[in-house]
């Protein structure tokens, strides 16, 4: 799959998250939307999201490494824009 811009990836994520695991989210999803605080993610949802991203983009994604870096940075939540930034780098490799 060719590289994608962050804007395109945010749009991909928004479509994916609007009905994630059969849970509808009616609010706007943009770069500042928080996975745990706004979308109500549980920890297992992050794992499932990683699996869905690999299927969607048709390639392995170092999502576990991304989660570890996130935890090591002391972050309490994750924004859609942060994930898009990571995915942009990842898909360009």
């Amino acid at each position: 799959m060719p590289a994608k811009s962050q804007v395109e990836i945010v749009a991909d994520l928004a479509a994916m998250l609007q009905n994630f695991e059969d849970r509808e989210y009616s609010g706007h999803i943009g770069p500042e939307t928080r996975f745990f605080g706004d979308l109500g993610f549980a920890s297992i949802d992050a794992v499932i999201l990683g699996e869905q991203l690999e299927t969607y983009y048709g390639r392995k994604i170092a999502f576990n490494r991304f989660l570890v870096e996130l935890m090591e940075s002391g972050a309490e939540d994750l924004e859609v824009g942060q994930l898009a930034e990571f995915l942009e780098r990842e898909l360009a490799t």
């Binding site: 297992i44 992050a46 576990n64 989660l67 570890v68 090591e72």
Partner: peptide, 13 residues
Amino acid sequence: GNMAVWAFSGTVE
């Protein structure tokens, strides 16, 4: 718990 603990803790990685 669930298996996410091993992802967030970096144990899998």
